[in-house]
Design a protein around this nucleic acid. Sequence first.
DNA 1: TTGGGTGCAAATCTTTTGCAGGTGT
DNA 2: ACACCTGCAAAAGATTTGCACCCAA
Lengths: 136, 136
Amino acid sequence: MATLKYTRQREAILENIKHRTDHPTADDVYQDVSKIFPNISLGTVYRNLSVLTDLGVIRRLSTGIGADHYDGNMIPHNHFICQKCGRVYDMEDDLDVTEIQKRASRHFKGQITGCSINFYGTCESCLEKSQSRNRN
Amino acid sequence: MATLKYTRQREAILENIKHRTDHPTADDVYQDVSKIFPNISLGTVYRNLSVLTDLGVIRRLSTGIGADHYDGNMIPHNHFICQKCGRVYDMEDDLDVTEIQKRASRHFKGQITGCSINFYGTCESCLEKSQSRNRN
DNA sequence: TTGGGTGCAAATCTTTTGCAGGTGT
DNA sequence: ACACCTGCAAAAGATTTGCACCCAA
């Protein structure tokens, strides 16, 4: 099997994701890491994001709006996706995904390894924007 | 505002989605509807799937694996997404999304209009396939 | 030394869009 | 007639991949 090999690029990418809380896209990470490695390529970023996701070190969030986002916070939590601006927010709910997953497994013949709960709507920031537009 | 106008293409697309239970992609629908309208274009299928989704007549499912899928069943239910084959399955769980959404709204300043719960893993069919491979 | 990793560019896949002509209402 | 819709094709956006060179182990 393939043995992972250390690279400064991969470290920088992981560092970047772990140290930010805004759920960046691959391109967001690329923009940031380019400041340290001006020659890094977007392909390398994509490859490493996939590797890190497969390792379970970071989490990929498919929002259904534009590019996938990535989350360095592996403590189980759910997300809100703004359908106006596409931004991803952490939810502070009391949903125990582990328990939900266990219950769902009882009625299902396949193997369930994960569960994600996404909320959709308009974020506070976008609500305010449309309110000020309506005042005109 | 734009008033909807009847077209045979749109009817055929809606018919197709409503009468199948396999959560087709835009291209799946295109393949099927092409049998009735050989000249229909993929663009028309995409446009109509968006219109119907916006109307709330069908539901768009973003799986994070390849193309979006569509669901003609508007009775609230959740989905399982096989990470091996990308297929989408209906879940028969007892999760009350309305209640979950209401509870989440209490801790959130934006406006929540929807919630989707996705389960991930390997479906029964793909489990069997990998079992038979291991016997070799 | 060698197999994984990188940068670059091309390719792929999915979805959107501009436009000219067609069609419900 | 007037919008809305369609087919076609090109464009756009996101992600993957082939390849030659590089580098950590």
